[in-house]
Write a protein that binds this DNA or RNA. Structure first.
Length: 585
DNA sequence: GCCGTTTTCGGCCCGACTGTTTTCAGTCG
């Protein structure tokens, strides 16, 4: 049984307990444990065997026993019993927005409704509205919720949510009443996928209604779920849920911190505030235990920025990307937060394609674009011969390809841009590479990549990749992933083993910034960093606009706690060459 | 179910919005 499965079961236990009306803190304990186990970089088996599991914060005696049982026997009696005590359809029901465990309990007990389908039927023939505590409106809302669930299940890609958010921020900032406006939520934290987007505006109280009015009528809004004095909630075209909150200028930093989250980070922050005798909410600090809240009386500690809030709690300011309650608060306390990589730190980009294979620009135009972007170097990496559908370079084309990059290198050097000749070389099914070592040695660097045979089982796929990594001519590993989001070419891979191998061989792992190609998630990047593996933020550019994706790559890298020392393309041109060739010596 | 800078018991973050209520519970973030 793997970690993800253990986490899934713990999560389900939490949900089932919630449905049974159990102690909410017990419920939270299971949800927290699920999150913790799911995000562990270490091997869960090792933790179980060594007894270190019990040492994790949030895992006590009971959870240690249950997780151990799960790990060793692949089953958990407690889980089976819980499951047997409730119909399975109830879990699906509480995914309906606005319909939670309490209401699920009521409809189940009173009407024997135990699935989304039966709930829908009960709404349609009016039985729900008859229930105590429900009414016509609730019934209608449930039907809408079911509809929404079916149409837009799941989350949204970061880049799509970002594009939608930037337009709305611009519109809100354009209103004369707006003082400050930012987007918050998981989007600001740079999660790869975003459930909803939160917008925050500071303005005078009298102007709030006008801003709410503007917001709910913006183009691209397909439904209004709620509209209040300080909060409105809408659905954007494409199904992204978006909320707007209007606060006073004094409250803005508190609200920004609060709505940026994560929820777990906020809980940890508030607990910390209580230890300082303070109660923290989205309006400010108040003295703990006092009736009057910061909303009524204003913050007892004035803060203009988020930095001020963290300072009041004796913490270094934590960048939004790190706010996941995964060690950042401890680091902020000790003053050991990483200085995260910035887009301005990037000096070059690798993994770019040209008209030699499936790119739409010549190497020369790509080099021009790199120069305009202010980059010091451009690394080309067209496809290898097995990628016949992408017109992969045949052996006899290699000399011409390399000669052209060398010629352009001479030309662009005078303009301050180096051009390197690399190759994106396929890892074949048996783990060998698509060209002979003699050919590979002619390139400045080699990016190894899996492009076919995706259905291979995880063990075989991992062995295949590990074999390729052992070749000292391999400089970099492209998109090492079991989860290319929304992509057909996802494959199963033991990412932990691959990271260990890259650490051992000194192979750089590519952080592919192409938005539909999110490879390692931030927790794996954090682990890779701890293992000393270097990262290259690569645009996988097939055209000039593709360079824009570097900004997304930097966001992912920041979320993975990476600094400019962890990212090789932050090195200047005169240093990068040595790094690319380091393995060959 | 977890945890401990007054605690091994008694806490556990906090507020807005909605719908159904006439004072509140449920849901959400």
């Amino acid at each position: 049984m793997d970690k993800a499965k253990v986490a899934e079961i713990l999560e389900e236990i939490g949900t089932l307990l919630d449905l049974k009306g159990e102690n909410p803190f017990k419920v939270r304990a299971y949800h927290n444990a699920a999150r913790l186990i799911g995000g562990l970089p270490q091997d869960l088996g090792a933790l179980v065997e060594s007894g270190q599991l019990r040492e994790l914060k949030g895992i006590g005696e009971a959870l240690t026993e249950k997780i151990t049982e799960l790990w060793k026997t692949e089953k958990l009696k407690y889980h089976d019993e819980l499951r047997a005590s409730l119909p399975s359809g109830l879990i699906a029901m509480i995914a309906i927005p606005g319909f939670g465990p309490k209401r699920a309990q009521v409809v189940y007990k009173k009407l024997k409704v135990d699935s989304v389908e039966k709930l829908e039927a009960a709404c349609k023939d009016g039985r729900i509205a008859q229930l105590e505590g429900f009414g016509e409106k609730s019934q209608e809302k449930i039907l809408q919720g079911i509809e929404q669930l079916r149409r837009f299940s799941g989350r949204h890609h970061y880049h799509k949510a970002l594009a939608a958010a930037l337009g709305i921020v611009e519109a809100l900032r354009g209103h004369p009443a707006t003082i400050r406006c930012e987007y918050a939520g998981s989007l600001r934290r740079c999660r790869e996928t975003v459930g909803d987007v939160d917008f925050l505006v500071s303005a005078k109280e009298k102007d709030a209604p006008a801003l709410m009015e503007l917001f709910v009528k913006l183009p691209g809004i397909i439904a209004v779920n709620a509209k209040g004095e300080t909060k409105s909630s809408v659905v954007l075209d494409g199904g992204i849920q978006a909320d707007l909150r209007v606060v006073s200028e004094a409250q803005f930093p508190f609200a920004l911190a609060y709505f940026t989250g994560s929820k777990e980070h906020n809980i940890a922050l508030r607990s910390r505030a209580l230890k300082h005798g303070l109660s923290l909410n989205e309006y400010g600090f108040s003295k703990a235990g006092q009736e009057q809240t910061a909303r009524d009386k204003g913050s007892v500690i004035k803060c203009c920025t988020e930095e001020d809030i963290y300072e009041a709690l004796e913490l270094d300011c934590i960048p939004p990307e790190l706010r996941e309650d995964m060690g950042e608060i401890e680091a902020a306390e000790k003053g050991t937060l990483p200085k995260l990589v910035e887009k301005e730190n990037l000096r070059g980009a690798f993994h770019c394609h040209s008209t030699w294979t499936d790119g739409i620009e010549t190497i020369g135009s790509m080099a021009c674009a790199a120069q305009e972007l202010g980059l010091d170097y451009l690394g080309m990496a067209d496809h290898s011969k097995s990628e016949f559908q992408a017109r992969g370079l045949k052996d006899e084309q290699i000399p011409g390809y390399i000669a052209e990059t060398r010629k352009l290198d001479q030309k662009f050097r005078k303009l301050g841009v180096r051009v390197f000749a690399g190759i994106e070389c396929d890892i074949l099914e048996d783990g060998s590479l698509d060209y002979s070592d003699r050919i590979l040695a002619q390139f400045d660097y080699v990016i190894a990549a899996v492009h076919r045979g995706f259905t291979m089982e995880e063990k075989k796929m991992t062995a295949r990749v590990l074999k390729a990594l052992a070749n000292p001519l391999v400089t970099m590993l492209a998109h090492p992933t079991g989860r290319l989001l929304l992509s057909r070419d996802a494959y199963a891979l033991d990412q932990r083993a691959v990271i260990e191998a890259c650490a051992k061989h000194g192979v750089i792992i590519e952080l592919n910034s192409h938005p539909w190609r999110l490879d390692l998630d931030w927790r794996w990047w954090k682990f890779a960093k701890e293992r000393g593996v270097k990262c290259a933020i690569n645009p996988d550019a097939h055209s000039v606009p593709d360079f824009q994706s570097l900004a997304i790559g930097v966001g992912i890298a920041r979320k993975g706690w990476l600094t400019k020392d962890d990212v090789v393309n932050c090195l200047p041109a005169d240093k990068i060459e040595a790094v690319l060739k380091a393995r060959r010596k």
